[in-house]
């Protein structure tokens, strides 16, 4: 009511308030500690990547990026991403849809299962696929006889990447879809839309932002996955090395500057991810502002109230 518009101003003004604010000394000490912590654990690691990448000059940097092994690692990473992301986006949509629109037994179990890859060590994830498809694995013999290579080949990398990246889209969408409720869908249905039209015109646009955000996270993880891929890839230079694996190899072979050069591509990807995320959040905040109902809607209530005219 009356307090809402006033509070908005108040938030900026509170600083001078005794009693409901910390003293300036406490406040700035806390800020200083927080800044120091972020400097060591956020800013320095980031800046260091680029500093080290260019430490030996631009030529070394350029050559490291143009080395055939690097190029093939980039190509492989892109291939894996292009395969995995659409599959997991599709799954994420289907899973979020199933969880929010239907009631069924074992629903909470399903949600837990979707979260599972987050809590499984990537190394263990990779190992599970080795157990299934490796030479000593369940299907190992059969695969070997038919000359199908999964482990230490691209399909294994794809599978491992699918596993570790599949919660991202669903996790973003489920809370949004739950919050949106099914009112909109139901009103679309009453207006004669069929299920598919409802999904396409009503559901999808309303979760667009979350979907985009989930996809970005999914891409970032696809590109950057290390542990799981490392276990199943076999590390064949020029064939089954993704960018992160290539970084490790360069580092272990004492090509520090080259390792950082290749790593700088990934760091730029990370920055791009952050940038997109910040932009999306900014857009969402702006849209919400636009939807704020006017606080003056009951301006007339005093004049129209009818009991007190006595």
């Amino acid at each position: 009511m009356a307090a809402i518009p006033q509070r908005k101003f108040a938030a900026g003004q509170r600083k001078s308030q005794r009693g409901t604010e910390e003293s300036p000394f406490v406040k700035w000490t806390l800020i200083a500690v927080a800044l120091l912590f972020s400097l060591v654990f956020l800013l320095l690691p980031l800046v260091n990547v680029f500093a080290q990448a260019f430490a030996k000059g631009f030529t070394v940097y350029w050559e490291a990026l143009h080395h055939p092994d690097t190029v093939s690692a980039i190509r492989l990473t892109l291939l894996v991403t292009v395969i995995c992301v659409p599959i997991n986006v599709l799954f994420g949509l289907a899973a979020a849809w199933a969880i929010t629109k239907f009631d069924f037994r074992g629903k909470s179990l399903l949600i837990t299962l979707i979260d599972l890859p987050f809590s499984v060590s990537p190394v263990v994830a990779g190992l599970m696929f080795v157990v299934l498809f490796g030479l000593q694995g369940y299907f190992g013999d059969w695969l070997d006889r038919n000359d199908v290579k999964i482990i230490f080949a691209v399909p294994g990398i794809v599978l491992a990447t699918l596993f570790v990246t599949f919660p991202f889209v669903a996790r973003e969408l489920i809370p949004i879809m739950q919050a949106a409720g099914s009112d909109q869908e139901q009103s679309a249905l009453t207006l004669g839309a069929n299920g598919w039209q409802t999904f396409w015109y009503v559901t999808l646009p309303s979760v667009k932002m979350g979907l985009l955000y989930g996809t970005i996270l999914c891409i970032a993880r696809c590109v950057g996955e290390f542990g799981a891929v490392s276990v199943v890839s076999g590390h064949i230079t020029g064939q089954t090395d993704t960018i992160p694996l290539h970084v490790e190899k360069l580092y272990n072979e004492y090509h520090g500057a080259a390792a950082f050069a290749v790593a700088s591509i990934l760091a730029m990807g990370a920055l791009l991810t952050l940038g997109l995320k910040t932009w999306l959040e900014w857009r969402e905040a702006k849209m919400e502002e636009g939807h704020q109902p006017s606080a003056d809607s009951h301006q007339l209530s005093g004049a129209e109230s009818n009991v007190a005219d006595g």
Binding site: A2, A3, I4, P5, Q6, A295, D296, H298, Q299
Partner: peptide
């Protein structure tokens, strides 16, 4: 007493 934003809460 007053309408929204008239300063009474302040």
């Amino acid at each position: 007493l007053g309408p929204s934003g008239c300063g009474k809460t302040t």
